[in-house]
Write a protein that binds this DNA or RNA. Structure first.
Length: 971
DNA sequence: ATTGTCACG
DNA sequence: GACGTACGTGACAATG
């Protein structure tokens, strides 16, 4: 991750470095780290008033020496925030049993901040982050601006940052720390330090690591296997039995440990890098402070230096520059004096602006020189919002029409790539039409952007980045690292509202973006984006990147406040490249088989239609519920219809099945017709249309922010509802086939939701049954109805199965009675027996509903919030509905979380094993793969392992695999 | 654009 | 005592 700068061939004359040669160093002083070390290293001393000041003294000495020795143009002192930081969110014990600081140290915290201000140096701190994270963030920013960085600290946790352009300096031992010193300490290069720490752990910070593994062993293992994931996925190959066992058992703990020690170099900077410039110290103020502490020897040194340099202490840092640190008496920054440089304590609302408040500076980029300016801007800010425009909504095959970028709010550009000649739409030759506009060839733009888009030190931000990620991947660019403002919003407020850009812009920025319709029209006259004139394209596309950046700026910090960083960073964000690859892979369909099925269905539909009309004695549209109801209930007088709230007759399958049972043949024939019509229109006809010419495959789109529970959904076409329950339907499944030489591999979780009920409600009897590997429905039947397993009947088992499902849905006597065809009274008796046998369940359900009422949301096992607005509704029906949702959402949502964890780990596990299997589809508890025939069994075992190991619970997770030439066979 | 229906987990 | 119900999705055809 080090050769980020200057790798692109096109970057020959580095204009940023040439014209603004700001190569002077930035010094980042680890204030929090220093104070502890100085306190323990230096003998106790006190001020005349008795205040202990030994650490303050050490700190002042250190700063003075630093400022005298170095030629830094910028210095900042960084502190921990007082409150908990984001690490406590996923590991509450982080730095937990640290004793409170010694009594003599406490008053020195504030004095050290005062000292920093007396030296006219900026103090940096940020709620939710440690000093180390801010140091990592500013080190990244400065290095990318081409400036040398020195971290003044001896903390080993910062050693991971050492590399080209970034060094450390130990102020206590007075010696530099470079890659050699890091290797000496950890036995690996700086970029592998976190992997070693993840294994070795750290008792001081309460980082658990893997028991029995110290730094030495860790270094040896990491050297052999490359990195932590490489080691963990090959743990079974370790020779020493005890070590192998520990690595397998504590794999998850090692992963958590790595996240604990890994510094976040993308913390929102509390103030711009440019603000950190060293100012001429206010010597009078400095001397005043030092005298007040009784540091006479230091005062003497300062005065000597002033004389030597011939400086006169007269507040030379005049006007604006002095304003932030010049409060008399060294008091804490006065809130009454608004500082133009901006304090860290600024209200969140002030961080953003209504779109209309800021001048929009949007630029059309039509040559490489202009593009390079934007690339330089991205390197300076380390942050780049990106949006792509295409001629279609299927990113697997769409043509890239343009790219927009934004580097700061209001500052955005659009790079047209494939815009045609203005109004010459319809593809007709028009010799009077204007020629195509000036555009940089796509290949050149990609070559120029690749370095930035793949630079680990530049964060790329998108809204629904999965789409853009796919387009760049098709152009040979693997965008990383990324943030997605849509997914941030989803993690924050899933279920509370939608997360599309337009909706979020209204909600958070009080701004209505230019509607797509206004640019491209609608319906038959709609044009593709490549036909849009450049001025309009610029206004629309640049605005998208601009809004994305503004939303990110506003929403990213809220993740920390809401303690939702872990959900976002471990469940949602990493899914973006994984799902992008799935969509891009697509799935092969047998078009001829579908066509034959369509033909067959068409013939049979005509037959059944005739039959229905014959029974009815008249011709009508069976597909019209209105006409059908009138025929059945008004004309034929079959029972008494009328049900729906709109006054219309209900003709759904339940009603028709009742009629069929009463012997009305027409009802069964309508049901047959409905089934055939559904299969034809939704599947056999539609799926043929969805086969992409370019790839010969179908590419669904998975929505990552559509559901209330954290599940994915699939659209255009929906491949999560392909028929399977009836024989007719399974014929459609057989049209989903593997490419030649390949097999389809389907692996699904067995009973995952019921297992999670047992886990989350902590139901002992149910957990035992799962641990014993019993037939869970038979086992619950035995326990609830008191029937011995050897006397179990299929009917009793069926009833228990229905109750088990009902629990997951937030059971009601009415619902269960309808499902089982029994009276609500009987159903209630069953439920009562169930809740008595599994008494923990009732406790959990009541607690969950109470939580929902109190907070307006429920949480999954992994911390995802599912908002349910109806929970306080005055209407009893709506409230009951929300209560059932409150029961269901944590169960369904936790299952979704676990599936996401598995999906995120699958590609790495496959790659590590050298497998060529490709993940194609997810259907909530099932994953579908396409895999070379010879590798199928191996891939099945591997993926099963990943899925079963995706969470460590009190109940086992079980996944079952099937292999076949088509999806029906594999399932 | 909304409603009814039905495919899936 | 009365609400009207199993939870979560998306697509299609009819209809306003």
């Amino acid at each position: 991750m080090t050769d980020a700068t200057g790798t692109t061939e096109t970057a020959a004359p580095d204009t940023a470095a040439a014209s603004a040669p700001d190569r002077s160093g930035l010094y980042l002083v680890d204030g929090s780290g220093f104070i502890f070390r100085a306190f323990h290293a230096l003998p106790m001393m006190t001020r005349p008033d008795g205040t202990p000041v030994n650490a303050v003294m050490g700190f002042s000495n250190m700063l003075l020496k630093l400022l005298a020795d170095i030629k830094a143009e910028a210095v900042a002192v960084v502190f921990d925030s007082k409150r908990l930081n984001f690490r406590n969110e996923f590991y509450p014990d982080y730095k937990a049993h640290r004793p409170p600081p010694p009594e003599e140290l406490v008053p020195q915290f504030a004095l050290i901040r005062e000292a920093t201000e007396a030296f006219c140096l900026p103090c940096l701190e940020l709620e939710g982050y440690e000093a180390d994270d801010l140091i990592a963030t500013y080190a990244r920013l400065a290095r990318d601006a081409g400036r040398a960085v020195t971290i003044v600290s001896s903390d080993k946790d910062l050693m991971q940052l050492v590399g080209p352009g970034i060094g450390m300096f130990d102020p206590m031992k007075n010696k530099a720390i470079g890659p050699d010193e890091v290797f000496e300490k950890f036995g690996v290069a700086p970029d592998k330090v976190v992997d070693v720490q993840a294994l070795a752990g750290d008792s001081v910070d309460n980082v658990p690591g893997v028991p029995g593994i110290g730094v030495k062993t860790a270094a040896q293992l990491i050297t052999e296997y490359g990195d932590l994931e490489g080691l963990l996925s090959n743990a079974d190959k370790i020779k020493q039995p005890a070590r192998r066992q520990k690595l397998i058992e504590f794999a998850e703990q090692a992963r958590i440990s790595r996240r604990l020690v890994l510094l976040d170099a993308f913390a929102p900077p509390p103030r711009p890098l440019e603000d950190l410039r060293v100012r001429e110290p206010d010597h009078q103020k400095l001397i005043g402070f030092l005298k007040a502490q009784g540091f006479r020897s230091i005062v003497a040194r300062v005065e000597m230096e002033m004389q030597r340099d011939g400086r006169i202490a007269d507040g030379s840092a005049s006007s604006g520059a002095a304003s932030s640190g010049s409060a008399p008496g060294g008091a804490a920054p006065s809130p009454a004096a608004p500082s133009p440089t901006g304090d860290t304590a600024e209200a969140p609302a002030a961080r953003t602006h209504a779109l209309s408040d800021v001048e929009k500076r949007y630029e059309l980029v039509q040559d490489l020189a202009a593009l390079r300016v934007w690339i330089d801007r991205a390197r300076t800010t380390g942050i780049l919002a990106v949006d792509t425009e295409t001629d279609s909504l299927t990113p697997a095959t769409a043509t890239l029409v343009g790219v927009s970028l934004a580097t700061e709010p209001g500052l955005a550009c659009y790079i047209p790539l494939a815009h045609g000649a203005g109004a010459a739409a319809a593809g007709q030759l028009d010799f009077d039409a204007p020629p195509p506009p000036a555009q940089i060839p796509v290949a050149e733009v990609m070559a120029a952007l690749k370095g930035v888009l793949e630079d680990p030190a530049i964060l790329k931000i998108g809204h629904n980045f999965k789409f853009d990620h796919q387009l760049f991947a098709r152009n040979g660019v693997a965008v990383s690292p990324i943030d997605d403002s849509m997914l941030i919003s989803y993690a924050l407020e899933g279920g509370a509202h939608g997360h599309g850009m337009d909706e979020l812009a209204e909600l958070h920025l009080a701004y209505t973006p230019i509607p797509f319709k206004e640019i491209c029209g609608t319906g038959k006259s709609q044009i593709t984006f490549d036909k849009v004139p450049l001025d309009k394209a610029l206004a629309y596309a640049a605005e998208d990147a601009d809004i994305t950046l503004r939303l990110w700026t506003l929403l990213k910090p809220r993740l920390v406040e809401a303690r939702m960083v872990t959900v976002y960073e471990t469940l949602d964000r990493p899914l973006v490249p994984v799902v992008a690859d799935m969509e891009r892979a697509g799935v092969r369909l047998d078009r001829e088989a579908l066509a034959r099925l369509s033909q067959d269905l068409a013939v049979r539909l005509v037959e059944v239609e005739k039959d229905v009309h014959r029974h009815a004695g008249q011709s009508f549209n069976i597909g019209s519920p209105k006409q059908l109801g009138e025929v059945l209930f008004d004309v034929m007088k079959l029972g008494t219809g009328k049900k729906g709230k709109t006054g219309a007759y209900s003709t759904d399958s339940g009603v028709l099945e009742d009629l069929a049972e009463q012997g009305h043949v027409i009802a069964q024939r309508v049901l047959d017709w409905r089934q055939l019509a559904k299969l034809k229109s939704t599947y056999t006809d539609a799926l043929q249309q969805k086969i992409e010419k370019d790839t010969g495959r179908v590419h669904t789109a998975f929505s990552l922010a559509a559901t209330n529970t954290g599940r994915l959904s699939s659209t255009d076409p929906n491949l999560q509802n392909i028929p399977v329950r009836t024989e007719e339907g399974r014929k459609i499944r057989r049209a989903f086939v593997a490419a030649p030489g390949n097999k389809l591999l389907s692996i699904d979780y067995s009973q995952i939701e019921l297992r999670l009920v047992a886990e989350m409600a902590d139901i002992k009897a149910l957990k035992d049954a799962f641990r014993d590997g019993l037939d869970i429905h038979a086992a619950t039947a035995a326990q609830v109805f008191g029937v011995p397993l050897d006397q179990m009947t299929s009917d009793i088992r069926r009833k228990a199965k229905a109750i088990n499902f009902g629990i997951i849905y937030g059971i009601s006597g009415f619902g269960l009675s309808r499902q089982l065809g029994i009276t609500p009274g009987e159903a209630n008796t069953f439920i009562k027996a169930y809740l008595e046998r599994f008494h923990e369940l009732k406790v959990w359900m009541e607690a969950t509903k109470a939580f929902a009422r109190q907070h307006g949301y429920v949480v999954t096992l992994f911390g995802r919030r599912c908002y349910m607005p109806g929970i306080q509704d005055k209407n009893a029906a709506r409230r009951s509905f929300a209560e059932r949702q409150a029961i269901n959402a944590p169960i369904q949502g936790t299952a979704a979380d676990i599936m996401k964890r598995a999906m995120i780990r699958v590609p790495g596990a496959l790659a590590a094993a050298g497998s060529n299997a490709r993940m194609l589809l997810q259907v909530h508890d099932e994953l579908l793969f396409e895999v070379p025939e010879a590798e199928a069994e191996q891939a099945a075992a591997l993926v099963r392992g990943v899925m079963e190991g995706a969470a460590q619970l009190g109940v086992p997770l079980v996944a079952e695999a099937g292999i076949g030439d088509n999806w029906e066979e594999a399932h």
